[in-house]
Amino acid sequence: MTTTTAPATNETGHLLAATGRVLIAAIFVLSGIGKIANPAATIGYIASAGLPFAPAALIAAALIEIGGGLALIAGFRTRLVALVLAGFSVVAGLAFHAHFADQNQLIHFLKNLAMAGGLLQVAAFGPGRIALDRR
């Protein structure tokens, strides 16, 4: 016998969706703020990874992280924002944490993949009822 479970449509499900968005967005918002708070260190880190145009990359990353994180929290253009942040997470993991022989870097890479996976769930199933997208 095969059973399927319908998406949560009760109040608890909507609260879980909103809470999940806030929790996954927090790392992006805080990371973006950290980049702005210490731009020289971030530019140095980007350059040390061999990426070009480190100052422009800093600005782009901060905008994606802060803007995307806040949009995700608010539930604004949630599916698109979740896809952008998922892609950003994978690219950042490959650019900065691809030294898999270093266990710490491997863990950070897997963390980025896990965040991308959670964001793909948001993109697939939407923001829930507590979101600007639902207005």
Rank of each mutant, 00 (worst) to 15 (best):
F53S: 14
F96Y: 12
I33C: 03
F28G: 02
L106T: 01
K35G: 05
R134A: 15
I36V: 07
A47E: 15
F125D: 10
L51I: 15
L119P: 12
A86P: 13
I27C: 11
A56S: 07
I59K: 04
A56M: 13
D102R: 03
L23T: 06
V81C: 12
R21A: 05
H14T: 15
L113C: 10
L106G: 08
S89C: 07
F88T: 06
V122A: 04
A95V: 07
H97S: 00
F96I: 07
F53V: 13
G50V: 02
G126H: 03
N10A: 15
L70I: 15
G13I: 08
I107V: 14
I59D: 06
I59A: 15
I59M: 13
H14F: 12
D133L: 07
V22S: 08
R79V: 00
T12L: 15
R21K: 11
I43A: 09
G128Y: 07
P52V: 07
G20H: 02
T78W: 04
G128I: 05
L83V: 01
S31G: 13
N104Y: 12
L119E: 00
G13W: 00
A56F: 14
D102W: 04
S31F: 06
N112D: 10
G93W: 06
I33E: 01
I46K: 02
G67F: 02
L51A: 14
G67Q: 04
R135V: 11
G32F: 02
A41H: 09
L23C: 12
E65Y: 01
G69D: 01
A62F: 00
G75V: 05
G67C: 08
H99Y: 11
A41L: 11
N10F: 08
A61K: 00
G68C: 06
T78R: 03
L80M: 14
A57L: 14
Q103S: 14
N104R: 12
T3Y: 15
N104V: 09
L72W: 02
Y45V: 01
N112Q: 10
L23R: 11
A54R: 03
G93L: 06
F53K: 01
L110D: 04
A25R: 02
F125W: 10
